[in-house]
Write a protein that binds this DNA or RNA. Sequence first.
DNA 1: GGTCACTCTCCAGTTTGGGGAGAGTCAACA
DNA 2: TGTTGACTCTCCCCAAACTGGAGAGTGACC
Lengths: 272, 272
Amino acid sequence: MYRIGLFSKMTKVTIKALRFYEAEGLLIPDYIDSESGYRYYSSSQLPLAYRIVSLRQCGFPVAQIRQIIAGKNIAKLFVEQRSKLEEEVVETARRLTSVNHYLDSVANAENTSYDIVLKELPSVLVYSCRMVVDSYDDYFTVIPKIGEEISRANPDLCCVDDPPYCFIMYHDGEYRDQEIDIEFCEAVASRGKETERISFKEIPAVKQAACVMHKGPYSALSYAYGALFRWIEDNKLIMAGNPRESYIDGIWNKSHSENEWLTELQIPVTTG
Amino acid sequence: MYRIGLFSKMTKVTIKALRFYEAEGLLIPDYIDSESGYRYYSSSQLPLAYRIVSLRQCGFPVAQIRQIIAGKNIAKLFVEQRSKLEEEVVETARRLTSVNHYLDSVANAENTSYDIVLKELPSVLVYSCRMVVDSYDDYFTVIPKIGEEISRANPDLCCVDDPPYCFIMYHDGEYRDQEIDIEFCEAVASRGKETERISFKEIPAVKQAACVMHKGPYSALSYAYGALFRWIEDNKLIMAGNPRESYIDGIWNKSHSENEWLTELQIPVTTG
DNA sequence: GGTCACTCTCCAGTTTGGGGAGAGTCAACA
DNA sequence: TGTTGACTCTCCCCAAACTGGAGAGTGACC
């Protein structure tokens, strides 16, 4: 019979942890002196202690270990743990890539480092207008016209603003700077009257999109695109939908300074 | 100016998290109504919110993010995080291998599954006797003789028993069942008189050893060795020292039943 | 009997928020 | 103007797997 300190040395489990495992019902001392409260362990408990340590080193939480020791759902628990760990490997690799990305921009002494985020895009009801424009400069003339057209056809159409979502979706497979095939969209609360060019549609949700916020004039958007595409590639992700450019702050509310404009780039991705 | 619920939707950060980030000094609302206590965020805070989300997705704890936002130690923090994540990848891969090992033994319906553990072996002062024996059966005759010899030379030699550590180290590169080159060792409190065959020495610490507890007669030890070697190989670890067989319970204290005997196998390893 | 190492129980803290109670606020609608 | 419903506030408790410390009791040795 060993006292807790000795058993702790034998198993390399701290005294605190041994007491914790007792409270959790994992490893009850062979004998507890009812007068002093001293715990006494026997060598025949070493295999169980080892089993606990081994399962902890596999990353099992205590509740699962309790079940495994009791012989319940053993295969199921191991299979679940395997898939949990497999996900964890992928996730950690992704984090590593992102950190390396940040380190690259630090090393290159770039003045802006892009904060790229993975998130879900919920499904959304929009009015949309697809068209081919000559150049990016056309946006400033074309888009206001769409706004006029839709509100003429639907005087009391209600665009959602909780939050607002107004974006252009790029239908070209890759970057172009002329004859750009775009679809202008704005989230609305409900469908309205369509016109020849403008229709209503539900854009389905996207499970994962790589997103980056760009602050400043549109002329610098290409750097953000560059960083975002590089990030996606480095993370071995695959583009799974058309990129969107969501306009948050712009000439309509921050006309005094292009530097305050905010645009979010969103690219649906999958792990393949 | 957006209220917290809207800002939460825009950033995909929960309200709870936004309040938490405020308490932590990461993201202070642009304006707080002193009467109602309502928090109001502005769109110009979106980039900061993004930055926080992005860094959290990289696995940074809040304290580090606070420093990064403040522009302190940026490069250092990223480098540290990189090495932390690199370790984590290795560790998770190891866990995955171990879980797969368990699953193998479940799938093969083996009656015993071995609980393999990585641990440190501290340095230890021992008396030791190296010899070549014909077969494993010789242990039972040879070892008692060593015990007699050492206590004849050192009548009041004190073997440590906090905890006791008595083992055989195998000097053959691989498994043999005859002419086995072994070194019998037992931990002692201090050096004593040496004999022709028995000397005192300090065995250096081992940073990592893969260990398994074997319960039962010595004839079944080979299965434990098999499992242990397979585990080491699957984990892409490299043997970094001679295997040890540590005798915990045996004929000396559990003479009534071989099934109660406990032996721990210890193999020093490195990640290469 | 004194000393020292060991052990006991109980409480607090770690991290990143989640859940809920009870109360106050805002905007719209009748 | 009153009411309703959605939102928000603060405050408190909870998680996981322990670690650290306080204050008190125990065991062994000199």
